[in-house]
């Protein structure tokens, strides 16, 4: 039987069709392979590198904050922007200006990106937000990503450092469930530590999960509500 199309012909040979078959059938047309070798994120990477160049030119150190929704990114930034001078924020959500309004109450600049239905920030969105930023007098910029522990991990925004937040209310094994985002973290912040006892947070189990999935990351434990641990966070930002 013909291996290519199963037409019942008794011959079985490599198909070099320079000869007469004595029958008609539709072989797949010959194809050739073209090398491409192009990342699906190439455009984002190019724009992220442009953002990085812009940040360097303006003397800005940039932190990309990533976590699930509700782990305390905005509350931490409200406090941080009050305590750390010369800092501003870009904040991403699917809808509303709510977070930017909250952050502006600190007196700092805060620019809202509403992504519509998009589950992450990308370098292009950040580049447009930068058009609205008055960078003179600033030396730190926080980018609060869309609350999501999956998709934002894939998108370089041009940041210097990635900070992943894990709140004590989320479950100690969350890093094991969402390992990719933790692998790229420079710092993991355990947040809402004031609630640890109330929710029965198993600190050792959480720290072990973070160390396993984020082997390069420093770990700090903070409470934006009580202020516990914030000095170490501010020292890390300045480092």
């Amino acid at each position: 039987m013909c291996e290519t199309c199963g037409c019942g012909d008794p011959h079985n040979h490599p198909h070099e069709h320079g000869h007469d078959h004595g029958h008609a059938h539709g072989h797949p047309p010959p194809v050739r392979t073209l090398d491409v070798r192009k990342s699906a994120l190439e455009l984002n990477q190019r724009l992220a590198d442009q953002n990085r160049g812009w940040f360097r030119a303006k003397g800005l150190k940039v932190f990309n904050l990533l976590s699930s929704p509700g782990s305390g990114k905005t509350t931490l930034l409200e406090r941080t922007l009050r305590d750390v001078p010369c800092a501003a924020a870009i904040v991403g959500d699917l809808q509303t200006e709510n977070d930017a309004v909250r952050l502006r109450a600190s007196g700092a600049q805060a620019i809202q990106i509403t992504t519509g239905a998009t589950c992450h920030l990308d370098a292009h969105m950040v580049a447009h937000a930068l058009e609205k930023l008055e960078a003179s007098g600033l030396d730190k910029l926080f980018i609060e990503n869309v609350g999501n522990l999956v998709c934002p991990a894939s998108y370089d925004l041009g940041e210097d450092r990635r900070v992943v937040l894990l709140s004590v209310t989320e479950g100690e094994d969350k890093p094991l469930k969402y390992p990719v985002i933790f692998l790229h973290a420079d710092l993991v912040l355990v947040t809402k530590c004031d609630l640890a006892a109330a929710v029965g947070f198993d600190r050792e189990k959480a720290l072990a999960a973070i160390r396993q999935t984020a082997p390069k990351a420093q770990i700090l434990e903070v409470s934006a509500k009580t202020g516990a641990g914030l000095d170490a966070w501010y020292a890390w930002l300045a480092g």
């Binding site: 090398d35 491409v36 990342s39 894939s154 082997p215």
Partner: peptide, 27 residues
């Protein structure tokens, strides 16, 4: 990500983060 040889907690990432179009076939 622990090194199986020496137990170091994590090395330099060399692969596994790719998302790329390697090649296409055309007629």
């Amino acid at each position: 990500y622990e090194c199986p040889s020496c137990g170091s907690p994590g090395g330099e990432l060399r692969g596994g983060h790719e998302l790329e179009l390697i090649s296409i076939e055309v007629p």
